[in-house]
Design a protein around this nucleic acid. Structure first.
Lengths: 345, 345
DNA sequence: TTGAAAGCGCTAACAG
DNA sequence: CTGTTAGCGCTTTCAA
């Protein structure tokens, strides 16, 4: 038989109301009574019944918001899948979820949304935004107002966000290195393409990538690193030049987003399927390239969890006033190839 | 505002009790009334509140059992993690879960457990057992008695089980092939080690593996296939002989369980890290071998989900009399290497 | 064949 | 400071 509040009340010689007050650290309980009740709770190892709590809570409507840029394809589909599942789980608890999508190239819009939310009566925000001073200050503002913010996908570490849900970027570069390292043979070289050293995400990936090769003992001169700013033409030209100049290059690590440009170069040079390519994330084009054998592996970051978990964390906080233990909740780094790509949620 | 039973009752001009009877297809409702109520339910798109249902259901104690062999290490840990999560989710609904573990080498024991369960008052069984006539008949027996059985990890397809949760074995072989195919170069050969052709699991893996290479156009004579019956010494000897006789072998696909024996051969022959090895599942030793670089990749089958989902499916059936749509629920095939092995749940 | 009512465990409002 | 009470939405008696 499961322990109920009534049983605790009886054993401690108080009423259910008082037990409830103790459970939620509410005021108006004499310290000695509180202590007595707490002991009984401990002794009996009381676990609240979530269903009952949900029911009783129901008229206490709560609103959560999730704010992210205008992604498309897999990214969009997976995160929305995660949001939908969280919404369903939370709806019976009187918690509703509202997504807000801002134009990817218009960060001002993101700030506007946060402003509007601040003035509304949201009870929590899941946020994926660029790491700028304005955003950071806004998060701290919200924190002051007791509106908790959980960042996901891309962190804003030096803010008062509750926690971060997303990939560990350094590690994701190491995973890529580990895959390629198995293939590398004497004298063969690798081309590393990143967006921009200033962008911490890509930098961390490349750092992790090189770090792992260092450990394995592959000399640094085997790597050609180029910065391509996520631009199609720049990527195309630089990758082309690099491959033309270095016939020993057998591997490409794309730490940035212009995978299409890279694929196009390989096709034009007749190297598709001859040079191994590892990249990140699953977009519709990357999927296609996997199937065609132009890209060999891609490393996925579980967007589903990135939609689901931040909302559930916020929901838990609303319902049980409990803040998460870990400030960094890293999502799985799944290795995807042409054969297991079907299994993505 | 969410639709409640009361709202339906009002709109249809009946009482809540009648709506409940209609919802659950219970008898004692005049056909015309039933129809009217059903229409209102449709119109208002009624979604039952799970929390309320859980509460009201609570005294209706239900028992689920999960039966599986005495695994150890990761296998055991992951499945127990899945069971624990399912148990927690179900406990508020008055559903309890009891695991039963039988000696891996003693299938009779499994049957005894099922016999005992049949005589007890379980309301559903999640089962991982060998595919034998006796087991199959027992499942059909249980089905007659309206005790639903969900198989997991290893299917018993020609029985009256509700559905199967586990990996798609043919596909898992294809995933392995896809990985190795990227590393294979002209003239290089591959050693394929399986347990036993009779064992459908290993056979399907090898079939999938060869099928994929067929598609890619690698000639069959590049593959050496040996049967090792999951025995350490047989595996050791046969792998040793194969490698000694064929210096062109650069890859090993272990479709069976004696990975340790294979690793030992590689070490003895000084080939560890020189020959690429892909295998299945994550055991403590495989983990160790990944880190040492003796095994390069392993394909994981999500044991967590294999513990979690069968129980949740059975729980859903108990609570909403709903049987699952898909009879095969395949779990993810995750590719694991030395760097992302940490992220396993 | 139907409706009314009690109660699942918890919370919140009100009364003392 | 504390106890009592009235629900939350659903299921399940029991009476009609």
């Amino acid at each position: 038989m499961k322990i109920t509040i009534k049983m605790i009340a009886e054993k401690a010689g108080v009423s259910a109301g008082t037990v409830d007050r103790v459970l939620h650290n509410r005021p108006n309980v004499k310290p000695e009574v509180r202590e007595r009740v707490e002991k009984v709770i401990q002794e009996l190892d009381y676990q609240p019944n979530k269903a009952a709590r949900a029911l009783a809570y129901r008229d206490n409507y709560k609103q959560l918001a999730i704010v992210f840029p205008s992604w498309s394809g897999y990214f969009r589909r997976d995160i929305e899948h995660g949001i939908a599942d969280a919404e369903e789980n939370l709806s019976d608890f009187g918690v509703s979820v509202q997504p807000y999508i801002y134009d990817q190239r218009n960060h001002k819009q993101c700030l506007d949304i946060l402003d509007a939310l601040q003035r509304s009566h949201v009870n929590g925000i899941a946020l994926c935004a660029e790491n700028s001073v304005l955003i950071r200050e806004k998060i701290n503002d919200l924190h002051e107002q007791h509106i908790p913010v959980v960042t996901f996908n891309s962190d804003i570490a030096d803010s008062k966000r509750i926690c971060f849900v997303g990939q560990e970027t350094l590690r994701s570069g190491r995973v890529a290195a580990e895959i390629l390292s198995k293939y590398l043979r004497d004298g063969e070289e690798t081309l590393v393409v990143l967006g921009n050293y200033e962008y911490s995400g890509h930098k961390a990936r490349v750092d992790g990538f090189l770090q792992r090769f260092d450990e394995i003992g592959v000399p640094r001169e085997r790597f050609h690193i180029i910065e391509c700013y996520n631009e199609y033409t720049i990527t195309f030209d630089k990758v082309y030049d690099a491959l033309a100049a270095n016939p020993n290059i057998r591997f490409i690590y794309m730490a940035n987003r212009s995978v299409t440009a890279c694929a196009e170069v390989l096709r034009r040079m007749g190297l598709a399927g001859k040079i191994r390519v590892v990249c990140h994330d699953v977009t519709d084009t990357i999927c296609q390239l996997l199937r065609e054998g132009v890209v060999d592996f891609t490393i996925e970051q579980d967007l589903y969890a990135q939609g689901y978990r931040p909302l559930m964390i916020l929901g838990d906080m609303l319902m049980s006033r409990r803040i998460p233990e870990r400030r960094y909740q890293y999502t799985a780094l799944n290795i995807i190839n042409a054969e297991n790509v079907e299994y993505l949620k």
